[in-house]
Structures are given as C-alpha cells and as structure tokens.
Amino acid sequence: MSSARVIDCREIAAADRAVPASGKWVVYSPAGGGHNPFALLGESLASFWATRELSWILFTRDLKSQVRRSFLGYAWLFSGPLMTAAMWVFLRSQRVVAIETEIPYPLFVLSGTILWSLFRAGFDAALDAYSSDILKKLNVPIEAFIARNLANVAFQFLLSGIPLACLLLLYGVLPPATIFALPIAVAGLVLMGAAAGCLLAPAAALYGDIGRMAHIVFTGLMYLSPVVYPASQTGWLAMLMRWNPLTPVLNLCRSVLFGGDAPHILPAAVSMFLACGLFLAGLIFLHVARPHVIARKGM
C-alpha cells in the first residue's frame, strides 16, 4: 500500500481559491513596489525607530573594532580634512595662491574641509546602504544600516570639533551664540549628501562606475563650493558657485560658527528643504530597489 499523495497545485488552488481570511498575511508579489509610496515611507520611518537598538549596536561594534585594531583610533576620523587644510595653509603662505578671507585663513579652510568631509560622509552613508553582507542573507531593515552610517557621521562631527576648537583657542576667536544652531545647519548639509547618496545607491550597488564617478565629481565639486576659498564675486566661477546648492548651506554653517555677515537663510533653507524631500524619496527608492539589487548581486 503506497501512501503517496502527489499534491497538484491546481488541486490546491481549486480547494480554496480565496485568500485565507484570519490573521495578517505578508504578501510578496511582483507587482508594484512603487504603488503606494507613502505607505512605504511610513514603513521606512517606522523601521528607523524599530531598529534603533540594532543601529546603535552596529555603530558601537564598528567603533570598537576600529579603535581596537589601530593606534590612533578615532584620530583617523578627522585627520583627512586636517591634512587638506594644512596643505592649503602652506600653499597660501608660500604665495602659490592668494586667498583673502574675513576670518583667519586657517580657521576658514579647516572649517571648510571639515564641513566638506561631513557632506561626503553623508553621501557615503547612504551610498553604502547596500554594502553590508548581512543584507544579502537576512531580512534586516536597511534603515538600521543607514542609521548606523549616519551615526558615524554624527560621531565624526563631534570629533571634528576638537581640532577646530583648538584652532579657535589659538586665534582667540570666541564663537557667537549662534554656534548652537550649528548642528542643525550641519545636519542640513549631511542630509544633502545623504539624499544624493540614496538616489544613487541602487545604481552604485550594481555598477562600480558610480562610486568612482562620484569620487571624481566630488573632487571637482569641492572647488566649485566655498570650501578652501570664499565664493568669488565675478566671472564664471562666481556664477557656478551661486547656482551650487551647497554654497548657501556652507556659508550658513560658517556664519553660525564664526559670526560675521548676516547669513542668507532663505537659499540655505530652500536647499535643505529640497534635500529633505529628496532624502525621503530616496528612502522609498532604496526600499523598492532592494530586492532587485540583492537578486542581481546574489550570494
């Protein structure tokens, strides 16, 4: 007597066609990731909250592991901008370049390179969202990794305060009260980077070209932004800088840090607002693209 019972899918389908009613069903189907963007966005934002513990654990894990295997530890986080700034101070002192600034040049250039590195870190934070192997094997919310990366940026921001504070003391510059607005201004800057990163992340995960291209574009972009020299007033460069959405945000950061001219809040606010919207759109995009990226990258 064979107890064989071959289940034919048609038989099952005929047995009960209707979706079983009780309980909450998760359905995976090919149709429309982008059909209900606002629901996706809600889910995404909820995941940020739900995975806060995981993001924190991942963040501290990376930090501990980085520090334990290096002598200088955290110092590496701000040594890059410090070096670039030092190079420019040296070049200027040798009169290779002539740059006039309202505040002492070393302060100007160091604040510039630090802000720029934070902007880039924000970009990378989102661009690398798919890079973790864990995402390819386990169904972990991608938000945990974005939050982890952004926490890294925040940490970098705090650490960068050290060399900057030293330099401020050296020049006897007392930051104005507006310095308390600095985190908000910097958050806006980081968000601009993250928004761009989110929108490029799926393509970057599939094609290595995007990451390389971004590297080159950013190097160029740095010279079109008031990073190592202030916005020029005349010529092509002035026009490019004026239309560069980073310019008002960088200027805003500097002015809340050092005082000086009343900043043009409006253009900066528009830039940051747009970045915010793009970042949220980017989150939806990351969600929709994720299964496709994993399917193509495999393993």
Partner: peptide, 27 residues
C-alpha cells in the same frame, strides 16, 4: 523576503526566522 518573485505570489503569516547565515555580523 530578500528577493521578489517575478511571477505568482507568496503569502506568509507569522514571524519568519531561519537558521541561515549563522553568526551574521560577527566581528
């Protein structure tokens, strides 16, 4: 839920867990 089907549909109810990728995230 790592990848999406290109045809048909999958319905699941309850918590999904697995003994896959053991030791994920070990540093």
């Amino acid at each position: 839920g790592l990848i999406k089907p290109d045809a048909g549909r999958i319905m699941l109810r309850g918590r999904v867990g697995g003994l896959i990728a053991l030791g994920a995230g070990f540093d």
